Computed example of a mutant assay.
Amino acid sequence: MSQAYDLDEDAQLASRLAHQAGELLLKARELTEITGKPLGSLGDAVGQQFLAGSLAALRPYDAVLSEEAADDVARLERSRVWIIDPLDGTREYSEGRADWAIHVALAVDGTAVVGAVALPALGLVLDTAAPPQLPEIPGPLKILVSRSRPPEVATRAAESLGAELVPMGSAGAKTMAVVRGEAHAYVHAGGQYEWDSAAPVAVAQAAGLHVSRLDGSPMIYNQRDTYMPDLVVCRPEIKDRLMAVLRA
Rank of each mutant, 00 (worst) to 15 (best):
V178Q: 02
H184E: 05
A158Y: 12
V179K: 03
A183T: 05
A177Q: 00
L165W: 05
G172R: 03
T175A: 05
S170T: 12
M176E: 06
G181W: 15
E164C: 09
A177W: 02
A177M: 02
A183K: 01
V179I: 06
A171V: 14
A183I: 04
V179F: 00
A158E: 15
V178G: 03
A177S: 09
M168Y: 01
R156L: 08
G172A: 10
G162Q: 07
L165M: 15
V179H: 03
V178W: 00
P167F: 05
E182D: 11
E182R: 02
E164I: 10
L165E: 14
R180N: 14
T175S: 08
R156H: 11
T175V: 11
T155A: 14
M176Q: 11
E164W: 05
V166R: 02
R180L: 07
A177P: 06
G162T: 11
R180T: 15
A171I: 15
A163V: 00
V178R: 00
V179T: 07
R180W: 12
K174M: 00
K174N: 04
H184A: 06
A171Q: 12
G162I: 04
A157C: 12
A171W: 04
A163R: 02
S160A: 15
A171Y: 07
A157M: 10
E182S: 05
A163L: 04
R180H: 09
V178P: 03
R156C: 07
V178L: 04
S170E: 03
V166K: 02
V179S: 07
A158L: 12
R156K: 11
A163Y: 03
E159G: 10
A158W: 03
P167T: 04
A158N: 11
G172F: 09
G181Q: 14
M168Q: 02
A183F: 03
S160L: 11
K174R: 10
K174D: 00
T175R: 03
H184F: 07
G169A: 09
L161F: 09
A183Y: 02
E159C: 13
E159Y: 06
V178H: 03
S170W: 05
V179W: 00
A158D: 15
V166E: 00
G162D: 08
A157Y: 11
V166F: 01
G162W: 05
A157G: 11
K174C: 02
V166W: 00
E159S: 14
A158Q: 11
H184R: 06
A177N: 03
G181S: 12
A158F: 13
S170C: 06
T155Y: 12
A177D: 05
R180E: 07
M168E: 02
T175G: 10
K174Q: 04
T175W: 05
G162Y: 09
